[in-house]
Amino acid sequence: MTQESATPDNHEVVVDELDLAIVNCLQLHPRASWTLLASALDVDPVTVARRWQRLSDAGIAWVSGRAAGQGRAESCLAVVELSCSATETLSIAERVTELPHVLSVEHTTGPRSLTLLVEVRDLAFLSQFLLTSLEGVLATTSYAVTQVYSMGDHWQLHVLDAAQHAVMLGAQPPRLDGLTAAASTPARPYDAVDRRIILLLGEDGRMPVATIAARAGLSESTVRRRLTDLVGNGRVVLRCDIALPDSGWPVISWLWAQADARDIDDVAARLRRMSGIRVCWRISGGPSNLMLALTTHSLHELSVVEARLATEVPEMTIHDRSMVLRSLKRMGRQLDAAGRSVRVVPLDIWADPAGGPILPAGPRTAAATASGRRRRVLLP
């Protein structure tokens, strides 16, 4: 095993191959011990822990947790597009970033100013969330996610070799993530104890059991038992993220597409096998029934990936495209202009949705409608 010397300045961290390998290991097994990672990567456990602390302190990489909704009875996932006045777009983005139901906030190209991913308890909560006004929003469009084929939770750097990959996966049972039949129906609803633990995992998905117990007012044995249930049964999603510019995959683009309903599952299965596909959802609320996120190394690569899509998935027709100019929030983390985490904004699908204003304010709505701008709220 090799061992490194301490790095003196975490403010000027340059990500190298070992850092990427550590992140990839945690993408496979987010709460794995440093000993397991050291075994997979053939380095000293102290080196792995030090490297991760450096990445975490710099906001380059982090592990988070959230309730595994993704279409279950206790969750409604929706994409909300906001058209904002130019002078208020940043202010609106900062305000919606604070909302506990908003998983992600992106500044995007095209007719929408901001694209949000929102998760609430059910359609009634989503309606309440949408029907509160926010000054500066001119129009909204929303799509319900009716099936998740893949999320950013499943995206990997793919820098591990086969042996390293096998070590990481061999140390745990198959990962349940809300997408498999075995994990589709929770054995019981989330209770208050589950929620306390999940909110703490939202701050740090690797938070030690002792820390969770102390902060949640629970015994360590209770926390261990609940974690085994929540993680082992796919009722909490643990996810390792990395700032995209540091990952080597800095560009994200969204595609809205259509596939015949009879072919859509087969189309989605082929899309999931393509390395550039970060997200694949079935959606309802507009002319498209698929929404994809492409991750690429450069802007120029986008045309190459689209050409591959046309060749490999000819049954799919692309209706619209949008590029992410900047991610302001990703799965409960506020991001800076470099895509690095600067603050935790815990996700809470059980919070009061009245705290989440999105729709245009009254006077602005009337003016926008009168001037011919479309105001659409499309629910399934």
Rank of each mutant, 00 (worst) to 15 (best):
M1L: 07
P8V: 12
H11D: 13
H11C: 10
I22A: 00
I22V: 13
C25Y: 01
H29A: 10
P30H: 09
R31D: 06
T35S: 14
L37G: 05
P45N: 10
V48L: 00
V48C: 04
R50L: 10
L55E: 07
D57G: 07
V63S: 01
V63C: 05
R72P: 02
E74R: 02
V79Q: 09
S85I: 11
T89I: 12
E94Q: 15
E98P: 01
L99A: 15
S104A: 11
V105Q: 10
H107A: 11
G110C: 07
S113R: 10
T115K: 14
L117I: 13
L117W: 06
V118Q: 01
E119C: 07
A124I: 12
L130D: 03
T140Y: 14
S142G: 06
S150C: 15
D153K: 14
Q156D: 05
Q156V: 02
Q156C: 08
A166L: 11
A166H: 11
V167G: 00
P173F: 00
P174H: 13
R175T: 10
D177L: 12
P186A: 10
A187R: 14
D191Q: 02
D194L: 06
R196G: 08
R196F: 05
L200E: 03
L201M: 04
M207P: 08
A210I: 08
A213F: 09
E220P: 04
D229W: 09
D229Q: 11
L230V: 08
G232S: 08
P245M: 05
D246I: 00
D246C: 00
W256D: 05
A261E: 02
D265S: 02
D265V: 00
V267H: 05
L271C: 02
C280W: 07
R282T: 10
N289I: 04
L290C: 06
L292D: 06
L302S: 06
V304Y: 10
V305P: 00
R308I: 09
A310P: 01
E312F: 10
M316C: 04
R326N: 03
S327K: 01
Q334M: 06
Q334S: 11
A338V: 01
V342L: 04
D348Q: 03
I349D: 03
D352A: 02
P353C: 12
P357H: 03
A361H: 15
S371N: 13
R373Y: 08
R374A: 13
